[in-house]
Design a protein around this nucleic acid. Structure first.
Length: 424
RNA sequence: GGAGGUGUCGCAUAGUGGCCUAGUGCGCCCGCCUGCUAAGCGGGUUGAGGAUGAAACCUCUCGCGGGUUCAAAUCCCGCCACCUCCGCCA
């Protein structure tokens, strides 16, 4: 949710941001109209209500005929107050609905356009030349089967397409990555968290996932609860309805949680292996700070993500995601894409978003500082999403015989093994 | 799942239809007093919105949402959270 004052003071900023996203700016005029109706209806209601309160004070002191007259007068006024209040509430709700439908204002620095209009900021590391090494790289599914790292057939048997079991060394890899990520994160000043993966509508709506992304979200109607697609949701809602102390900023949390995604509309896309799945585990970083500090925190978040991929010795590139592909909450987003040898391309493994005050306004999270109490800024970034990271490790560090070299930084978390071997 | 209880300002409490414009104590902030500290004295101390050049000012906020009434912290209904007990359960 954006600041209503921008509507009055500088609506062209909103129009420009909508255009960068490739979306219609017609909503801006609706917003302006709704905002005016809200203000005028508040004025009407409050004037009537003040009159009602004044008269009400006279009643207990009045006697006889005068009292009867006052009662008749206030009774009539009471109906008008009720009507004015209803009008005012409806106008406020209309404005709120429109405001919540509007995505965050895409940063002028975010490239304009859609999914393909990203800008590559840098490429780190060099993809291996398997031809020069004299063998054809296997893809992650083949490697996973040789190593006994996961089982997609039985995943489909038990839960359906896009489900899997992590098995043997695959399960161990997830635990190792989790422990390594949590260790790193706490060294960086993040509080480790294990949050609930089922949340109320407020949390899901407040983080901006019930807009265009709603089709991708699992919902349990019997309990009116949502399965989170990322622990960004319970972490953002963690401090909802709270006023935080500016001195304590930034607050940093790193959460391990399962993530559930319906993947609606992705039929036939990435169907092989465990690249695109309905459930996976992830360690997510989340930061509460002030708007002013958020830009630097965003860079810092990206720096940590890069440090993580460096530690895993994976080649990757960083892209500046285009405005149309930001999602509702972010003004700017950097994705890290690891090189996937069998696909011959870079694929997203992590993402860092600055949501500025968008989520905090919806969830009513404020920061009290020297210059008053203002909405907090929130940022989120992936530290490690399990299946894709496991894919990247297996494919990039594979050896000719199907073994996989364990990157040095991960070895302490994997029984000091330097290589994982095929089953037989 | 069943039965009962509780929910008021940062904390603790008072308040059972109209002088509640929510009192008091503690904590916190400012000032006075004071070798220093404490005590004492005086003042301030929820949040949101509207109005204004800025104020004064006005409205809302007693877990949340409805209702009754001229008038609701107070009465009624629904929901939520917490506590106690029973059942079930990892």
């Amino acid at each position: 949710m954006i600041d209503v004052r921008v509507l009055r003071d500088d609506p062209d900023v909103i129009r420009a941001a909508q255009k960068r996203r490739g979306e219609s700016d017609a909503i801006v005029d609706s917003l302006i109209g709704a905002e005016e109706r809200r203000r005028s209806s508040i004025g009407t209601y409050e004037a009537l209500r003040a009159e009602q309160k004044q008269l009400g004070k006279l009643i207990p002191r009045a006697e006889g005929e005068q009292k009867q007259q006052l009662l008749a007068q206030t009774k009539e006024l009471s109906d008008r107050v009720k009507a004015a209040e209803a009008t005012q509430a409806a106008a406020a709700a209309e404005l709120d609905d429109l405001l919540r439908a509007l995505p965050n204002l895409a940063s002028p620095e975010a490239p304009a356009g859609g999914e393909d209009d990203f800008v590559t900021l840098e490429e780190v590391g060099t993809p291996r030349d398997f031809a020069a090494e004299g063998f054809q790289p296997r893809d992650h599914l083949e490697l996973g089967q040789m190593l006994g790292a996961f089982d997609v057939e039985r995943g489909a048997k038990v839960s359906g397409a896009r489900f899997y079991y992590l098995t043997g060394v695959g399960a161990q890899l997830e635990m190792a990555l989790t422990n390594m990520a949590m260790t790193r994160a706490s060294e960086w000043g993040f509080t480790p968290m294990i949050p609930p993966a089922l949340v109320k509508p407020r949390a899901m709506e407040g983080t901006g996932f019930l807009g265009q992304a709603a089709d991708d979200v699992y919902y349990l109607p019997k309990d009116d609860l949502y399965l989170v697609g990322t622990s960004e949701v319970p972490l953002a809602a963690y401090h909802s309805d709270e006023i935080l102390d500016a001195e304590q900023m930034p607050l940093r949390y790193a959460a391990f949680s399962p993530c559930f995604r319906r993947e609606a509309g992705s039929y036939g896309k990435d169907t092989r292996g465990i690249f695109r799945v309905h459930w996976f585990d992830k360690v997510e970083m989340f930061i509460y700070t002030t708007l002013e500090a958020s830009y630097a925190q965003h860079e810092q978040l990206l720096a940590w993500e890069k440090q993580w991929l460096d530690a895993l010795e994976l080649p990757y590139r960083v892209i500046d995601v285009a405005a149309g592909d930001l999602g509702a909450s972010a003004i700017r987003k950097f994705d890290c894409e690891a090189w996937i040898p069998a696909q011959g391309k870079y694929r997203e493994v992590s993402s860092a978003s600055n949501c500025t005050q968008f989520q905090a306004r919806r969830l009513d999270i404020r920061v009290r500082g020297e210059h008053g109490t203002v909405p907090a800024a929130t940022l989120n970034g992936t530290l490690v999403a399990m299946p894709r990271t496991i894919i990247a490790i297996l494919e990039n560090h594979q050896l000719a015989n199907g073994s996989v070299r364990v990157p040095a930084a991960l070895r302490p978390y994997l029984q000091d093994r330097d290589v994982i071997e095929p089953l037989s």
